[in-house]
Simulated scan of single mutants.
Amino acid sequence: MDYSRRSFLREITTASLGAAGAYWLPTLAPEKTAGNKAFDAIPQEGRVLFQGDSITDAGRDREAEAANTGLGRGYAFLAAAQLRKTLAERNVQCFNRGISGHKVFQLADRWQTDTYDLDPDLLSILIGVNDFWHTLNDYDGTVEVYERDFRNLLIQTREQLPDARLIIGEPFVILEGSAVSEEEWMPDFREYQQVAKEIAMEFEAGFIPYQSVFNEASKHVESTYWTADGVHPTLAGSQLMAEAWLQTAQRL
């Protein structure tokens, strides 16, 4: 037979992979992807906004303002990638506006431009580690300040974005990390985690128990596999966070 070069290569590649038992084709039915239980909080052309500090920032390109660009290399990027693949027919628009080092009051200072103007259908917030961590240096905040600022921010958000659904991530820490001292962090940091949980309940937000997620994962490998410094996740830790985020978003 008179094969073209392209046809010939396709035939032998298919035959070789098939013989090895490795030939497969991915599904192209995104709305029926395994694990897609609902995502009812995200409509057609829905907007998803990730907000927070350096864990969300994850080296994003702050000059990239368009949807689905400049998402960084952390959990927000990984979650957005899976979300857009799973909900391809909805053409979900994802944004990352996390900024390294930020505390709640700094979110509030930029909330108009970085949140209200984007008009998200789903707003995800992970904030709190700096509200505590920086008190060990030159910040005079307290857990009461964190609670007051966070609650006020969400009260205003509910007024401006009454239909937006919320996800709140629990601030977390790995005590074996190189940047963390258990003596300095515990038990005070747990109060910040409790505040985040209570506020999530108060505002009927999806809550991601990241501390439990990392604690459970650390039963199988060293905890620093997930975050070397105890605060910023590794690649594997970011994937762990993304999966927990997606599971929460599915159920809103």
Results as ranks from 00 to 15, higher is better:
79 A>W: 03
71 L>T: 10
73 R>M: 11
85 K>P: 01
77 F>D: 15
65 E>F: 09
62 R>Y: 10
79 A>C: 01
86 T>A: 14
82 Q>K: 07
76 A>L: 01
80 A>I: 04
88 A>D: 12
88 A>N: 13
84 R>D: 09
60 R>F: 02
77 F>V: 11
63 E>V: 10
87 L>C: 10
86 T>P: 12
93 Q>R: 15
80 A>R: 11
76 A>V: 04
87 L>G: 10
92 V>D: 00
72 G>E: 01
77 F>G: 14
72 G>L: 10
89 E>V: 07
83 L>Q: 01
85 K>H: 14
77 F>R: 15
83 L>W: 00
69 T>D: 10
60 R>H: 03
81 A>D: 13
61 D>P: 15
75 Y>E: 12
66 A>N: 09
70 G>P: 07
84 R>N: 04
71 L>N: 04
61 D>W: 05
73 R>Q: 08
73 R>Y: 13
66 A>E: 15
61 D>E: 08
87 L>S: 04
69 T>I: 02
63 E>L: 12
64 A>K: 14
72 G>S: 07
85 K>E: 02
63 E>Y: 02
80 A>P: 00
71 L>G: 07
65 E>Y: 10
90 R>S: 01
60 R>Y: 09
74 G>Y: 01
86 T>D: 13
89 E>P: 13
90 R>Y: 04
66 A>W: 13
64 A>V: 10
70 G>Q: 15
60 R>P: 09
78 L>R: 08
61 D>I: 07
77 F>P: 04
60 R>W: 14
91 N>V: 00
72 G>V: 05
63 E>H: 13
85 K>T: 11
69 T>G: 07
82 Q>P: 01
89 E>Q: 04
67 A>K: 06
59 G>H: 02
84 R>K: 07
65 E>H: 13
68 N>P: 15
83 L>C: 06
82 Q>F: 01
63 E>S: 14
71 L>D: 10
79 A>R: 02
85 K>G: 13
87 L>F: 06
85 K>A: 08
65 E>V: 12
69 T>Q: 08
88 A>H: 14
93 Q>F: 07
93 Q>I: 03
86 T>W: 14
66 A>R: 13
83 L>D: 00
91 N>G: 08
79 A>P: 13
83 L>T: 09
78 L>A: 06
81 A>Q: 13
92 V>S: 02
67 A>D: 11
78 L>C: 02
59 G>V: 14
86 T>K: 04
90 R>I: 06
92 V>A: 02
71 L>H: 09
65 E>T: 15
80 A>F: 12
86 T>V: 11
65 E>K: 15
85 K>Y: 07
